[in-house]
Write a protein that binds this DNA or RNA. Structure first.
Length: 268
DNA sequence: ATGGTCGCAACGCGA
């Protein structure tokens, strides 16, 4: 089976456990990176995932907010649960696994949303988001002949004009302001990361992974944004076969406002 | 221009 990695902001792993179980049965990724688990580690539904073959987990959760978890069918070596901005938020976990004869370092991120007001002087949540992105510059896509890196997660920024339903109308809306989009893009490029979703789906094409709950008909209005991302070191780009955005998941019963993004590679 | 909906867990906050 070719190596497959999925990422999904689940917005409460306990509430949506049946959806995650169905997703794992139907799509069987080797690895699933979850964000916004909203679950302390001692209450994480590990047994349910173990029963489905995902016995290897890197969990970093907290009560009520944030939280990330990486579920895997392959052995994982937990590398780091890094406290970005030093305020104790559980927004990152990295783990190493073996794929395609390489040692792959996999980062799972949940970047702060940043609040409503896009002014760091008056909105501490926006200041925090910008600081978080700056600190992410130290996370680089190191690789050589035997190693590679993958960074996935809810980065809460839609960098391209085609990553939002209206570039013009969202220029002053947190997630698509120039200070965020330029910051994310420069951080990505300087870190040596490749935007794998856009390597597969041309930048001219509209692409969203999130649709607000505050819309009476998300599908008809289609006011989406691409907030979830898959980045890799350059030595994995030629091995990528497909990136699938599971738009249908937004229409499932009691859905998350984000949908899974599934990346398939050409090696085992 | 405004408000719209979720989840957690407490009647507000963060998204």
């Amino acid at each position: 089976m070719p190596f497959t990695v999925a990422t999904w902001n689940i917005n409460s792993v306990r509430l949506r456990l049946p959806l995650v179980e169905q997703f794992l049965k139907d799509y069987a990724p080797d690895v699933l990176c979850l964000q916004e688990t909203k679950c302390p580690d001692d209450l994480f539904p590990a047994a349910a995932f173990e029963a489905l073959g995902y016995g290897h987990m890197a969990i970093s959760g907290q009560k009520g907010y944030h939280g990330v978890a990486t579920l895997s069918r392959r052995p994982l070596d937990i590398v780091e649960k890094r406290d970005f901005c030093g305020i104790g938020d559980r927004r990152h976990v990295s783990a190493r696994l073996s794929a395609g004869g390489r040692s792959v370092l996999l980062h799972n991120f949940y970047v702060p949303a940043g609040g409503d007001e896009p002014d760091p002087e008056i909105n501490p949540k926006f200041r925090h988001k910008l600081d978080f992105i700056e600190e992410m510059r130290s996370v680089r896509a190191g690789f050589d002949g035997e190693s590679a890196a993958i960074l996935v997660g809810d980065l809460n920024i839609a960098p391209l004009e085609t990553d939002v339903w209206s570039h013009k109308q969202l220029l002053k809306v947190v997630s698509h302001t120039p200070i965020e989009t330029e910051g994310l893009e420069s951080m990505r490029a300087e870190g040596g990361w490749v935007d794998l979703m856009r390597a597969h789906i041309p930048p001219q094409e509209r692409l969203y992974t999130w649709w607000s709950y505050r819309n009476r008909d998300w599908a008809a209005s289609d006011r989406g944004r691409r907030l979830d991302h898959v980045w890799t070191s350059p030595n994995l780009v030629d091995d990528m076969r497909e990136v699938e955005v599971l738009r249908a998941a937004r229409g499932w019963e009691r859905p998350s406002d984000h949908v899974p993004v599934i990346t398939r590679f050409g090696f085992d």
